[in-house]
């Protein structure tokens, strides 16, 4: 006999009656590695159990023009335009280990903000080498995980059900 509705509803026995249905992956995530070391991490975690996550690199291509005009690359090397990549996306996770991608971080962050796409930044390593990248991401990233490691990136994606 329970003293109240709340007491009954919070009991372990009542947990059996919670509706159980498979939870579909909720996010169409795009993971962008801004620099070479981040790209290595992206390649490793891309093997995870992801349903809707797509991984991209964004390494320096100085011969291609201004730094904010850049191409992304799928992990198989196929180029992808930022506009195309962001289509049908609702969360973008940007990974950085140093400042080499700061300008691109700002451009990607702005593009996401303009399209109302939630942005998360994962700064791998001690973060000291990525101060400019962090500053560029700060206005746009709903969350910045600082001094993260590879497993944090993996756990973030898993928790988001991508």
């Amino acid at each position: 006999m329970y003293a109240s509705e709340s007491a009954k509803a919070a009991s372990a026995s009542e947990s059996r009656y919670r509706i159980t249905v498979p939870i579909a992956p909720a996010r169409n995530a795009r993971v962008i590695a801004l620099d070479t070391r981040a790209a290595s991490v992206a390649r490793r975690i891309s093997d995870g159990p992801w349903a809707n996550a797509r991984f991209y690199t964004c390494e320096t291509t100085p011969d291609r023009g201004p730094a904010d005009e850049f191409l992304l690359y799928r992990l198989d090397g196929v180029p992808a335009a930022l506009d195309d990549m962001l289509r049908d996306t609702d969360v973008v996770v940007i990974m950085a280990t140093d400042d080499s991608g700061a300008t691109r971080a700002a451009a990607i962050g702005s593009a996401c903000t303009a399209r109302a796409i939630t942005t998360a930044g994962v700064v791998l390593g001690d973060g000291f080498e990525a101060d400019d990248a962090v500053a560029a991401l700060r206005p746009h990233a709903r969350v910045l995980l600082l001094s993260a490691d590879e497993s944090d990136a993996f756990e973030l994606l898993r928790a988001l059900r991508v």
């Binding site: 939870i23 909720a26 969360v91 939630t118 942005t119 998360a120 709903r142 969350v143 995980l145 993260a148 944090d152 756990e155 973030l156 928790a159 988001l160 059900r161």
Partner: peptide, 11 residues
Amino acid sequence: RLVPADSGIIK
């Protein structure tokens, strides 16, 4: 169904 704002909890 966590969201990026839950990153403190995730970490």
